[in-house]
Nucleic acid binder design. Structure first.
Lengths: 328, 328
DNA sequence: CACGTTTTGGCAATATTTTGCCAAAACGGT
DNA sequence: ACCGTTTTGGCAAAATATTGCCAAAACGTG
């Protein structure tokens, strides 16, 4: 199934927009992506669950010459043994019980396009050898087939694990590792790029409004504040899901912390009080100044003396802190 | 009675030393004094009680060509009517009951020297006309005398009052005012020149040690601090008297606030607490930082976030305020 | 209204604080 | 011991605070 070029552009721009969102670390990643897209090199994307690995893979695909061809995702975590091979290579009719007709595997489907292997670390060891052999020249047979099939594929793998540790533990083949990782791209967790959260919230609300045909509500600064304080173990996916949940049940034109589900708010049982240090200073100074003024019956020279500051500084601070005095 | 020139120099230098004491406002006054001393102009010294008006008059006298001749002080506040005239002009034998012999008045005694009229504002109005007439040519008769006496006098007057108000209230003659004030010199109160207090204390202690032949004790910073905070309504005279009182009864080699008499300390019943504003800031910030650290279990990044400062700034402040943390 | 004194606020120089950047040090795991 | 990651502290640039100086404004008095 080929995509039309106008659709490609639309999908590509939407994906990039969601991905980047004024976040500087994303900018440097996009730089690498733009360099990589034009070459048929295999990419390994690492990052915590929910950070947008698949989205990034799609962006690379859509930026590449293979954009018009299929993007075929495969989750390596749910298959094993023969079922994995069947999924990748397909089978011929009658190859085994239940093979009532020929079926193409993902390799074939991704021909001249991109194969995305999510959770590559979950690939069973017993399948890794065969898989590796195919990656060498992208020639394979279907199960129960005799004819060799040649395909052209860009491979993008993704994992949230440390593959090197698995290699060390003999859970992952080192040669396979080097084959799938020509270019590594690491996605940082959301808590490492909090500055993008307000824009993400805005964009996800836009998406929900379009998706559900409901007006887009605004968001209170308090809500944003809570989001900024949360660590987001589920990363962008968690934020997007939460926005969706809130959006669906919300019937007001503004979303505040009250609108948040209780299981989310549970993380804030003791709402971490912001203790803005500049505000702490201002409060303490204002209090001390007022007390000294009271003691001296608004004699500024005496007040400055008590506070051990110059009269000029006192005048400066009275103005800065907007403290009114009776003329002495 | 004429003074020897070596005595003049000694007295002069001692007086100037006591007077100036590294105080900038005194320096500018001394400039005027040095200009005035060489000319026979009348000087009016104003300033609060105890500020050293008589001392300054003596300095002018000692710096003038009249230094070898008498300096004759008169307090205008204790005499009135005939007694005032008798004091100034003297009397002949038999001039009145009790005038058993001739007596010279202050004018005669001050001949070729300096006449110092302290508290000139207290001069009774009924005496002002006669007095003014004498100031025009310094010719007068003793009471009960026939012969005119001519003297040469430098007149220095002093007051702690606003003579202009008295003129308006018809308590002081305006023409007399202009006669006695050719050059005005104003002495600031001690509270306006607190920076001189530590040195004054030191010098008065030196004087007392020499006067009473006792070792000179040192002084604690706390004592100086109290002195700096007191307003000294009695000015330098009050400070000097207090030092003398303390010195006499003191038997330690150091003087502290404990050494001060209770009637002086009465002014500090509620000891004005210094509220050093920099310390207020430091205390408030330290407290906030410690609380945030406790909340985050010494996670510096989280702490910085709570405090709304950069991690680098937190590190800076931990060092500045000497706050130790367990490594996270 | 005039005038001497006190207070105020603009300005600039100086001091201090904030904070990004980055290399070195420290840490933790293998 | 090696290595990738995190933390630390030096450095400098930028931001902010402090404060002396002084002319203008305000005040109080005559």
């Amino acid at each position: 199934m080929k995509l039309q070029s106008s659709n490609i552009k639309f999908l590509r721009d939407a994906a990039i927009q969601e991905f980047v969102l004024e976040c500087s670390s994303m900018h440097s990643i996009m730089k690498v992506v733009n360099q990589v897209a034009g070459f048929d090199v295999n990419v390994l994307i690492t990052g915590e669950s929910g950070t947008g690995k698949e989205l990034l893979a799609k962006i690379i695909h859509l930026l590449s010459p293979r954009a018009v061809n299929p993007f075929v995702p495969v989750n390596c975590g749910v298959l094993s043994g023969l079922m994995f091979e069947d999924k990748l290579f397909g089978h011929e009719k009658g190859a085994f019980t239940g093979a009532t007709r020929r079926k193409k595997g993902c390799f074939e489907m991704a021909h001249q396009g991109t194969l995305f292997l999510d959770e590559i670390s979950e690939l069973p060891v017993e399948n890794q050898v065969d898989f590796l052999r195919v990656l060498e020249d992208f020639r394979f047979r279907r199960i129960g087939g005799e004819k060799k099939i040649q395909v052209s594929i860009r491979l993008i793998s993704a994992t949230n694990k440390n593959l090197k540790s698995l290699i060390k533990a003999d859970s992952f083949r080192e040669d396979l590792f080097y084959r799938i990782q020509v270019v590594p791209i690491h996605l940082p967790p959301l808590r490492k790029r909090r500055e993008a959260i307000p824009k993400m919230v805005d964009q996800f609300l836009n998406q929900m409004a379009a998706k559900y045909k409901k007006p887009k509500p605004s968001v209170t600064p308090e809500l944003i504040n809570i989001f900024l304080r949360y660590d987001w173990p589920g990363n962008v996916r968690e934020l997007k899901n939460l926005i969706e949940r809130v959006f669906i049940v919300n019937d007001k034109d503004v979303i505040s912390p009250r609108s948040l589900p209780s299981d989310f708010l549970w993380h804030f049982q003791e709402p971490p009080q912001m203790m803005d240090l500049a505000q702490v200073r201002k409060t303490a100074e204002t209090k001390a100044i007022l007390e000294a003024l009271n003691r001296t019956e608004c004699d500024k020279e005496k007040t400055a003396r008590i506070l051990n500051i110059s009269p000029r500084t006192l005048r400066y601070k009275l103005l800065k802190f907007n403290i009114k005095t009776n003329r002495h």
